[in-house]
Write a protein that binds this DNA or RNA. Sequence first.
DNA 1: ATGAAAGCGCTAACAT
DNA 2: ATGTTAGCGCTTTCAT
Lengths: 375, 375
Amino acid sequence: MDAQEPPVFLRKNRRYAETNRRVTIMDVARAAGCSHTTVSLSLNDSPLITEATRRRVREKAKALKYTPNRVARSLRLARSQTIGIVAGSGPDQSRAGLLRYLGTTLLQKKFRPFLSSSLITRQDEWECFGEFLEDRVDGIIALVSDRVERYEASARQVNCPVVFALGVHQSDDRADYVTVDREEGAYQGAAHLLALGHRKIAFPYRPCDLLFHPPKLRGYQRALREFGVVDVERHLFPYPVEMDWTKSGYDFGEKFLSLADRPSAVFTSDVRFAMGFIRRLRKAGVGVPGDVAVVAYGSGRDTDWMEVPITTVEFPLKVIAEKAAEILIRRIQGEPSGDSQMTLGHELAIRDSCGAKAAREGSRPNLDLAGAATS
Amino acid sequence: MDAQEPPVFLRKNRRYAETNRRVTIMDVARAAGCSHTTVSLSLNDSPLITEATRRRVREKAKALKYTPNRVARSLRLARSQTIGIVAGSGPDQSRAGLLRYLGTTLLQKKFRPFLSSSLITRQDEWECFGEFLEDRVDGIIALVSDRVERYEASARQVNCPVVFALGVHQSDDRADYVTVDREEGAYQGAAHLLALGHRKIAFPYRPCDLLFHPPKLRGYQRALREFGVVDVERHLFPYPVEMDWTKSGYDFGEKFLSLADRPSAVFTSDVRFAMGFIRRLRKAGVGVPGDVAVVAYGSGRDTDWMEVPITTVEFPLKVIAEKAAEILIRRIQGEPSGDSQMTLGHELAIRDSCGAKAAREGSRPNLDLAGAATS
DNA sequence: ATGAAAGCGCTAACAT
DNA sequence: ATGTTAGCGCTTTCAT
């Protein structure tokens, strides 16, 4: 209760001092009549500090509206409690959902998610990745549409942990990742249509989608083969690359209608594409699922209140987010890594567009209650 | 070309040194045989440095894969070249568009946009705002759904420039902002329907939307009065608060259909709401715009390829983004402020849902005009 | 229980 | 033209 004097060791410097000065730990120390060390320890709840001191410091800090400077703290600790999230611009609904889950999970674990600016601009994923590395984020979760090697190598160099989510990986990948088996997912989607009796199933694809397309194509073809379809190449349709997926689908609908040998079903890898497609068909009086059945790959939750709720093969987004966060944080803490490469399955969400509901209407009881004790 | 020795003044410290060390300016200095000052000056293109030196330093830096530590730099400069963007979770399409424009504009001006985590989580806008303040961003662009005073006050305290975008402001506001005249916008939307002959125009609203609703209501009512409608309260409909706006609209459609005194048009403040509404009506065989005309407040670009492209009253998003960025950056640079409070107008985007196109092409919407002489 | 001092990596004033 | 030094605000070791 005496030292109103600054602890002597602050001979202020010339210039920066007056520039926009905000309250620092020093100001609090002065006000509380103690050293800045004591303030720091108090504010961080060190057991070394008396309860009385701690309270006094806290009060003063509050009175002065002191807020710790995160930048200084980060520099000193070489830790920022910040996670970078790289996601290319305009992620579809699935990825938007994934981002939300990621944000929530990370926040719970006291890390702050920091979104790449590529999410809102057309800036390059690679560039954003590099920026995060410079920013000294503690770790990165990357949803990239390239092969991962380049990213992995660059992050390894500076020792920054990265977990890839929803990427495409190879068996010899050293990277940490959580992804889905796209081949299996496409297989499920196509198989569902096949099981409903369809044999001519169109598979429109984006010719430029070099990374994600091949596994889906394989899944689709495998399903066809297993169901005894001979010419598995017959209904493949590349479609023009448009910014607007809905329009792409709409335009494809136009083309589809003019087909001589019109398929009875369509399996597409984008929900918005499916929406546009269905729109065009209905405009021509062609019904979905009545005349043409549709299954899409992706999240269809948003279609529940739309023209035709779309049956989809969905990612387990929440699990992916949680696992990715978990793996990343383990790496950051330097804990033994456990399983850090995961490939998950999909979930078939049956809505209206495939026609399964209509076909099944009332005919079958729900058999999923296997072990339920119904008393 | 001699000093292979470190300039002597680096007696390494005990602990942090070995933790995850990344290449620093010191390492480059050592490699290039000069002081770290020279490295810094070279890398920042100071005219004080010889071209030869600069090149040598740059080469070494590259060889060592040196990247400057932004954290240290920020601490030293008390500047981070970073702008925080606060936007509540799940912004609608309009705001999503605004964010994209903001990102692009800021990036062009060499600032890095940093999205609030509230964008992807349900975290509080206010909390995110506070975090940005602690993060020492150079400035903030805030899209908040509260009154702005609290934010303004808090930012002023720490001398952090803030520009509010799309907020609701009062005439005595001291804050910098770029916003729209919602009353005028709603007036335009309602007037458009009135001009098409409609007199019974439903105006569903979200009861909890305390900040943005009143001006829109005023605009709607003013339009009605100007067109001689007497009972301007008659078609106001509060609707239950739902997470899912499309569902809200769908449910409202249900209610609307059961109305004894059914309006011939609807003016709503959300596009997704309009989509759900239209969906429900069409399901019941009620056509839009044939039987009911619809105008929404917000961005309708995404509806172009949908069931019924929706006529909307739109924000001038690009202008808003550019102006907001401009004002903010001027504040950061400490330049004379110029005009830093702007209220912009809307743009009526006529699509299909209002029936104006159909009307122009000869066919008339089915109006239920009070005393109109329908031929 | 508290204070002194060091130092994270950088920029810039000042000295040479 | 380049090097020395201080210090941004913080945490932590060490000494008292």
